[in-house]
Design a protein around this nucleic acid. Structure first.
Lengths: 123, 123
DNA sequence: CTAACTGTACTATTCGTGTTAGTACAGTTG
DNA sequence: CAACTGTACTAACACGAATAGTACAGTTAG
């Protein structure tokens, strides 16, 4: 489900980009699946079509989707490579966070425990 | 050293807040240490005094510093409790990141390796 | 006491970015 | 042909960040 939070500091178009990329990477949106049209999604979310268009344009640039003028926007068939990039991004972000946590004085064992908790609670 | 990056999307006053809080938490700024005056720091960083004032006001609200009108701004004597809060914040942020990484398909072992690397490279 | 510092509190203005509003045009489809 | 699509514009608006300027009271070194 595609949603936006008007109270969030993050711009709407960025929320849309992250939201749709995540759905695609997680397989909730299949390759070649038809996305809502610019105008339709704008109506559903009660925001301006230009904002949707801005998000779709960036998603196409990131190879998350492709567009066929007159037809619509569709999930990219090689979404797998996007997923790979996304995992890499997550790791890099974690690297930064670890360094920040370390020099804030957070013990490695605390992070270790947290990591175990998160990766076990889904069982 | 207190710095700001004009190209950063994060507002200058927020950069200052994080920057000074980090320096204080890490002990690079000692309790009761005298901070640069609003006007002096503004001159050094080539930004408006109001922006410095905004950051100092928020830092005081967070108990990172205290101010004596006419005298200046100083690092809080009980900066230790701020450091504790900061460690807690870092852990919570990591929790969010772990969940994101997990459902982006990042393997636990990858994160484990990264964690070990970061916490060993300082040896 | 005075001059030169401090913090603090305002108002007004400027600036950048996100968002909206509106229009237009070409391709697609039933 | 009618009703969809994406795409490309321009203009206006809204909001927050940042600047500019002024003012006033407390502190301190001379």
């Amino acid at each position: 489900m595609i949603t936006v939070d008007m109270r969030d500091r993050k711009p709407i178009y960025e929320q849309l980009i992250d939201n749709i990329r995540t759905l695609a990477v997680q397989g909730h949106l299949k390759p070649d699946e038809h996305l809502p049209s610019v105008r339709q999604l704008a109506a559903e979310l009660a925001i301006n079509p230009n904002t949707i268009q801005k998000a779709y344009a960036e998603l196409e640039r990131q190879n998350v989707i492709y567009s066929l003028p007159g037809r619509g926007n569709f999930i990219s068939p090689d979404i797998g490579s996007v997923a790979k990039q996304e995992r890499q991004r997550q790791l890099e972000a974690l690297g930064v966070m670890f360094r920040q946590a370390q020099n804030a004085g957070v013990e490695k064992s605390e992070i270790q425990t947290l990591l175990d908790t998160v990766y076990n609670e889904s069982k």
